[in-house]
């Protein structure tokens, strides 16, 4: 298909604004500094996340003890383990240092949280864009499939996948847990990204690109993709928090990460009912860690949404 050049008779767009005016009207580039100024709560969330990341990366240097080092003298079973100068947050049933286990547990939580949100949202985004761009029967079929997957509550679907996918640990990361957590995110992301992509597909410039004979892949990469980046980033941030919560729940149920890998949920699973009164620190601190991490990602996700795409409904 060829596109003819505009002839003399066709109306031309008139440029009425001066270059200075155009420059003044162009939205200013938004920097990290603007984000800090406009979104103080999001900045707090971001700072907490940075601290968590740093402690996860440098865990061996930051943690006061080896997370697997057993010291029975610091076990509540023998009357010890209370938080003090030796063990700042106390010791667990085996006398292992809780602070060190929390710091190493951040590795598990963040890696599983990040990878599952990334994989789930990316597959969901691809499905959403393809569905929106293809339209017609493909769209209907994909949407029914998404409806089907959405009829399973997240944790039920995750547990079902855990039961199906064999246990597989690579570089200390539980791949099966990541797969189980990312699958429930796929239909949710696909739905949001599809609606974002759909609003672009119907715009005149996409029609123009189609009329100009450009290939589908070029239209998707040049016109649709840049417009769904904002909701995609917001979704990933929000789902990292969800994924951390889900990992903690699965590990608590004994279906997620297994010993000796330090995991916040697993630390709560090992709490014997006797310790509710004698060693409350074993319950309070791991739960606080999960709450703080999820809270930080929620704050950042909310603020990113307000900053990048205030109209987006998640």
């Amino acid at each position: 298909m060829t596109v003819s050049a505009p002839t003399e008779n066709e109306p031309k767009a008139e440029i009425t604004a001066s270059p200075e005016q155009l420059k003044a009207e162009r939205p200013s580039r938004r920097t990290l500094f603007d984000f800090i100024k406009q979104q103080p709560l999001g900045t707090i969330g971001f700072l907490i996340i940075v601290i968590l990341f740093i402690s996860a990366i440098f865990a061996p240097d930051v943690a006061p003890y080896d997370p697997e080092e057993v010291d029975f003298m610091a076990s509540p079973a023998l009357g010890g383990g209370a938080p003090g100068p030796e063990h700042l947050l106390g010791g667990d049933a085996f006398g292992r240092d809780i602070l060190s286990r929390l710091i190493f547990g951040a590795r598990t939580a963040l890696s599983i949280g990040f990878f599952s949100a990334f994989i789930g949202c990316s597959i969901g985004a691809i499905i959403g864009i393809v569905s929106a761009f293809a339209g017609g029967k493909v769209d209907i079929l994909v949407q029914r499939g998404i409806d089907l997957l959405l009829s399973f509550p997240i944790i039920i679907l995750a547990i079902l996948v855990i039961a199906i996918v064999p246990k597989n640990v690579v570089f200390g990361i539980d791949i099966n847990v990541i797969i189980a957590i990312s699958i429930p995110f796929i239909p949710k992301c696909a739905r949001v990204i599809r609606s974002a992509a759909l609003s672009i597909v119907t715009l005149a410039y996409v029609d123009a690109a189609k009329a100009a004979g450009y290939r589908g892949s070029r239209i998707v990469f040049r016109h649709i993709l840049p417009n769904v980046v904002a909701p995609y980033l917001i979704l990933i941030t929000a789902y990292i928090g969800q994924a951390i919560l889900l990992e903690a729940s699965l590990s608590f149920l004994g279906l997620g990460v297994v010993e000796p890998t330090p995991s916040w949920g697993l630390m709560l699973a090992g709490v014997n009912s006797d310790y509710y009164i004698t060693a409350p620190w074993m319950i309070v601190f791991p739960g606080l860690a999960v709450t703080l991490a999820v809270f930080a990602f929620n704050l950042l996700g909310d603020s990113l949404r307000d900053w990048l795409d205030p109209k987006l409904k998640l």
């Binding site: 919560l245 509710y276 409350p280 319950i283 739960g287 999960v290 999820v294 704050l299």
Partner: peptide, 22 residues
């Protein structure tokens, strides 16, 4: 309410049990 979105329900349950026992 923001806390409600971040607190794991099983941990909240454990805190309730702890408070009841105490």
């Amino acid at each position: 309410t923001i806390g409600g979105l971040a607190v794991p329900s099983f941990w909240f349950g454990m805190l309730i049990i702890m408070a009841l026992l105490a």
